[in-house]
Simulated scan of single mutants.
Amino acid sequence: MNKMTMVEAINLALKSAMRQDDSVIILGEDVGVNGGVFRATVGLRDEFGLKRVLDTPLAETMIAGLSVGMASQGLKPVAEIQFMGFILPTMEHLIGHAARLRHRTRGRLHCPMVLRVPFGGGIHAPEHHSESTEALFAQIPGLRVVIPSSPARAYGLLLAAIRNPDPVLFMEPKRIYRLNAQPVEDSGQALPLDTCYTLREGNDITLISWGAMIKETLEAADHLAQQGVSCEVIDVVTLNPIDHETMLASVAKTGRCVIIHEAPKSCAVGAEISATLAERGLVNLQAPINRVTGYDTVMPYYRMENHYMPNTADILEAVKTTLEFS
């Protein structure tokens, strides 16, 4: 079993899906000749040819619309939007058509498309390259929003997304594309969607996060373990639909919760999770739910980027405040 980074695992999943299913088509800006801006699609054009790996113009609206059309006619397009900041032109097709196609046709048509998009900060990128706007899409019925946090989960979740009969927004945290490597087997086995993954069992407090912030969350859990604090760490993974049951069960056990995400605080997915835990799990809470998030402002340029993004120290401070509440 080879060790690989997340971007390599994504590439492997795409190869696996294309080898198993001739209806899987890759399209996007620079995905063919150049292998994608982050090289997630490198080598695919050489193996599968021009008809299955399509370089498109710089036209996100066209990429999304073409994907909806392909999906409605029996293909399984996997389209790439180069950065999250460029996704706004796709919203008409994703929200108005892809997410509604099954409902609109009373189940006669499905829309098995995947829209891959690198997101988040931490790589010293210019404007419109570091957004974390998952909440814009997590509210849309019929549109799954999936975010992996490790190479192995990226491989299994991407396979599951490609095989899903409905549209999936597959958001890839680019800060951890090449952060570390882990064993990934090219087994062709998909991981389940629509469920949280408990990465660490604990009894004192629940830490909930997703994407790149899982790194800092686990670091905080390791540090707290040395102080005798037992943290349960939950990776949400699928932001729509959200698996609230796993989080409710965890909070019922620990009684305390901190939610960590990079996106701005207001109207974020963390707010939805917090509201549900309060509505359905209030009797189990021993302290107010705490949130560690980005600021309600535009992601700054790289000189201020680290001041914007939550870090391990921020998580530790939030945990301390939550544990001391009585």
Rank of each mutant, 00 (worst) to 15 (best):
T5H: 06
T5I: 05
M6I: 09
V7A: 01
R19P: 05
S23I: 12
I26F: 10
N34T: 04
N34G: 03
F38T: 01
F38A: 02
T41R: 01
T41Y: 06
E47L: 02
V53K: 04
T56D: 08
T56E: 11
A59N: 13
V78P: 01
A79G: 04
M84E: 15
I87A: 08
H93S: 13
I95G: 01
G96D: 07
L101D: 04
L101I: 04
T105W: 15
G122V: 07
S132I: 01
G142T: 04
R144F: 01
V145M: 02
P148L: 07
A152D: 09
L157I: 13
L159E: 10
L159K: 03
D166R: 00
M171K: 13
I176G: 03
Y177P: 09
P183F: 11
S187Y: 15
T206A: 15
W210R: 06
W210M: 10
I214P: 01
A220S: 06
A221Y: 05
H223D: 14
V229E: 08
E232F: 10
I234V: 14
V236E: 14
V237R: 12
D243G: 01
L248V: 00
C257A: 13
C257E: 11
I259F: 13
V269I: 15
A271K: 14
I273P: 08
S274K: 12
L285Q: 06
L285G: 08
I289V: 15
M299D: 00
P300I: 05
E305K: 00
H307D: 11
Y308C: 02
Y308R: 01
P310E: 05
L316C: 02
E317Q: 03
E324M: 06
S326L: 08
